[in-house]
Design a protein around this nucleic acid. Sequence first.
DNA 1: AGGTCTAAATTTAGCCCTAAACGGATCTGA
DNA 2: TCAGATCCGTTTAGGGCTAAATTTAGACCT
Lengths: 199, 199
Amino acid sequence: MARDPQPGRDDDGRDGARTPQHPAPAHSAREIAAAWERERPGTPVSSIGIVTPIWQLAKLFGDDRRRVLARAGVDTATLDLLSVLRRSGPPYALSTRELGHRSLVTAGAVSQRVARAEQEGLVTREATGGRPRTVLVTLTPAGHDLVEATVDQVLHREAGLVAGLTPEQQTRLTELLHVLLTDVQHRMGDDRLSQVGGE
Amino acid sequence: MARDPQPGRDDDGRDGARTPQHPAPAHSAREIAAAWERERPGTPVSSIGIVTPIWQLAKLFGDDRRRVLARAGVDTATLDLLSVLRRSGPPYALSTRELGHRSLVTAGAVSQRVARAEQEGLVTREATGGRPRTVLVTLTPAGHDLVEATVDQVLHREAGLVAGLTPEQQTRLTELLHVLLTDVQHRMGDDRLSQVGGE
DNA sequence: AGGTCTAAATTTAGCCCTAAACGGATCTGA
DNA sequence: TCAGATCCGTTTAGGGCTAAATTTAGACCT
């Protein structure tokens, strides 16, 4: 969720963003937590300061990346697939199972991504007689070229977006995010924890 | 259309494992950056330590929230809409424009969200003869009840997910995320910056 | 060997979103 | 007064994803 507190007084009203359609504002985690406290005293707001900005940043980064890649005629899901293969090094081939693990998407999503990329000649798919049934996805020269032509653009752009933080802040943020991510992955592993926990 | 939490599925008593399909692993930002360096020396990897974990955390939190809410028969987009209205306080009404701003989605998405929620009797929509053409969306008692019945579950669950960080770490992370978010929003405002800049 | 079990990939149904085209009403200026 | 510029909201086209059903081919057992 992402939202804000008060309808009335505000500060924006300036400039008209050029970006496609959507607006920019979106209110801060601080304001959202305050609004819950005001409307529903006792609401457990402690996680909002972390979860909300993470969600908002992911949305902003994701939308931005999609727009940058649209110019190159690729979509983010395809570039993600190709990048994973490219990064894995020669022979640039992985099983669909491995692809799902590394991209955090379901097997069905991998199947569809690969089918689209194969259609465009960016990867090939071959059934190796693995144990139960392993399918190996391999990067084609065209796929390799596409990664080379776009990945620096994306990373360079994103480096610019986080450049507002000092090197020390970037380091500290990276560390904290790493700790949180590791811990969250661990907790999700043992789900059935409190899952919903009721009141 | 209102959907029930967990339909029929009763034939098989045994279950317990909850996680639907997808795996857990996913490589860390550190490994990803190292892989790019190894495969393509010179790749601008400086942003990976920040952007990648943010993206992964948003995915994990989002998937988790969707599963928690599915039990209550709601989807995340609808709860987001209802929450924004609920938090705005009496009379629990906002324009579609304002809704888009606060949820970071396009006008088209707002239109669809409201249409679905209206269909389920969670909000009402009325054209006020505002300036150019303003549509006011108002929370119904049913919508209000749904928020009350679910929002604590979600927030409580998420508080548990970030509980692995010490209070000091949580505070520091909240601060850094806030700074980064503010800065990124500012930079996105003056787009046309380097946009693609690449070579 | 033959029958079942199981793991992996694919297919299907349904949802949500963005971008762009559209529809309508207000305001502006000649 | 009327054309045109604007500004909003809605609609449409198409993409991507999850969850669940389905298919497929080794593995295991008797």
